[in-house]
Design a binder for these strands. Sequence first.
DNA 1: GAATAACCGAGACGGTACGTCCAGTCTTGAA
DNA 2: TTCAAGACTGGACGTACCGTCTCGGTTATTC
Lengths: 194, 194, 194, 194
Amino acid sequence: MSPTPGAKGRAPHRRSEQARIAVLHAADDLLAERGFAAVTIEGIAARAGVAKQTIYRWWPSKVEVLLDTLIEDSEQALAVPDTGSAVEDARQYLHALASFITGDPAGKVLLALIGEAQHDEQMAGAFRTRYLEPRREAERAMLARGVAAGELSPDLDVDRALDELLGPIFYRALITGGPISRTFTDLVVFQVLG
Amino acid sequence: MSPTPGAKGRAPHRRSEQARIAVLHAADDLLAERGFAAVTIEGIAARAGVAKQTIYRWWPSKVEVLLDTLIEDSEQALAVPDTGSAVEDARQYLHALASFITGDPAGKVLLALIGEAQHDEQMAGAFRTRYLEPRREAERAMLARGVAAGELSPDLDVDRALDELLGPIFYRALITGGPISRTFTDLVVFQVLG
Amino acid sequence: MSPTPGAKGRAPHRRSEQARIAVLHAADDLLAERGFAAVTIEGIAARAGVAKQTIYRWWPSKVEVLLDTLIEDSEQALAVPDTGSAVEDARQYLHALASFITGDPAGKVLLALIGEAQHDEQMAGAFRTRYLEPRREAERAMLARGVAAGELSPDLDVDRALDELLGPIFYRALITGGPISRTFTDLVVFQVLG
Amino acid sequence: MSPTPGAKGRAPHRRSEQARIAVLHAADDLLAERGFAAVTIEGIAARAGVAKQTIYRWWPSKVEVLLDTLIEDSEQALAVPDTGSAVEDARQYLHALASFITGDPAGKVLLALIGEAQHDEQMAGAFRTRYLEPRREAERAMLARGVAAGELSPDLDVDRALDELLGPIFYRALITGGPISRTFTDLVVFQVLG
DNA sequence: GAATAACCGAGACGGTACGTCCAGTCTTGAA
DNA sequence: TTCAAGACTGGACGTACCGTCTCGGTTATTC
């Protein structure tokens, strides 16, 4: 995250914040409007009013551009809740996740990046390091709070539980394409966390 | 090439089976050896000793070539078992699935196709129609046998149970990249089917 | 239309003659209209209605394209004359040469290629082999006829004489930019051949 | 014009002489070592340890940098001689010229600039104004001394004679690539000046 | 002796063209 | 008809330089 001070800051930074934002928006918009195939470096550059070289200077590939947009977007749209009850947190979180990946344009970015990760091991590494692991940590903390509060069994295998919670949602989103209703997510939570 | 006049042989100069096999093998091998990025029509044609036109004549896209290889391969390597016990069937099936997508070259094809499906809605449709749905039907039958035998609850939501069984395995394979042990798959089965 | 063997090109065309001509014309026109800096592969391709790859397939560089146009053009516009008198031949040839390089668009191609040859040793080799040497041979023959006929001294050093004839014309064209009048070329011939 | 380092007293603008020298040397060296294609503003700047802006501040283009190096170098290596005999002066001068353009690294600069002048009319103007015309004046004076001394015919067309002297040397250097022996230059002088 | 301003290095920026790879279409000649 | 071969248009790739533009740092008079 860039240090964004108040109005202008003294920023001796050479990098143009304006160009950075324009690139992220352009990539995002292209994916939402015309699909992943339309997300090309040339297309992003043209839409952002930016030179290709500027993109290559700051991002190793177009998927890293999308990864940046995803990280910025999902911090807002997909915060891990903390209501006091771990089960309720899980219910809310899974519902928000389902909405995100089925309805939010930024959710399409997430799915596209998971798709791309299947083709590119290096990209998969960046995805896990920069997106998945920080999020996973917050998810673990969510369940750990429940264990600490006595709401969940002390024997709970947190990592397995998380895979059992998230797996079915992503299975529908990535593979079957089926709908993911609130009922479905609630029943998954009930199944896993009792 | 001997056109095997043994059976009936009404049309001797039809599609070349030799070319078909060569294309499927070439695509498979390229994916296994050099990754999805190396799977190009030109690359397949060159390795198979086949003209590009021959590929375009019989397959609408390179992913359909891979889909053909997947279907042929997974019918052998990933049959739905029928031991008499639905729970045991599920345990065996999930274990075989985990081995397939983590160890078998053909499993890499499956993951690559799921990846590609995120970028291409049309391809996703073909994947579901030709690969997923027939398999899903067999999976449903597997659980239905358990319900009919009284081994599983008559209230079991078969489709949800399947997503809960398969989701965690694919979540690890597609997203976290974590290992999928026999213990893990067994515990998932226990969690979902009791 | 039925492909009557006589009407159209009966050759088993691999290479497209239409594309070849379009490329040569486009390069020529770009040089004449907008100068050497405008002769780019992309510019030629765009103007010729041809893909860049088609140019790269048949020519190693843009200067070889120009070299092809030069060879075709100068065979027509700059034939070595044969009037029966070597001195008269030389007068006519030098005058034609002066007109070619100062007035004819194809002459601009010649000067541009000589310019480029200063920067690129490989190109210089191609220029000499494909353009200069065949022409030099005809020029030598022109003077040799005069020697054989007794019109020119048997002691004449033909190669030196050619350099003394052609040098001053090219010196003006390439370096001083001065005018090259008929009087000038005639006096050069008189000086060298007496 | 460059400020002469000897003139002090007034406050000339604070141009860095060190940077100026470094740029000229870098351009010269790049041309000699890696050819004209390697003479880029970025390459010069990097090798000279100078900012691109510094080059743009003082030279309108990279060829003007080379022109500066040529002028400095050729004033030393290519002075018009004055022995008392115009014919002898011409013999020495043509020989020195031949050595310069075939052997001296600075001679490569001269040929490269003549080459570039074919592509860029503006550069051709600068080349003639700053390099060629001062030199031409000295060459004219060389022959004029011979005419005044009665060594050469009072009818001699000095400009034509110069083109006939220099043309053959440059023809070989620029076009045929042939060797330029002392015998050759001497015979050219004899042919033109008798 | 501080302020000022041209000069310097560094390098980001919007661009153009490079030469390559591959997509998908079309044509040829043999079997 | 199919097939191997491969030329064709077209689009994107990632790279190299172009010429312009700040950004701080450095001198070296000038106030």
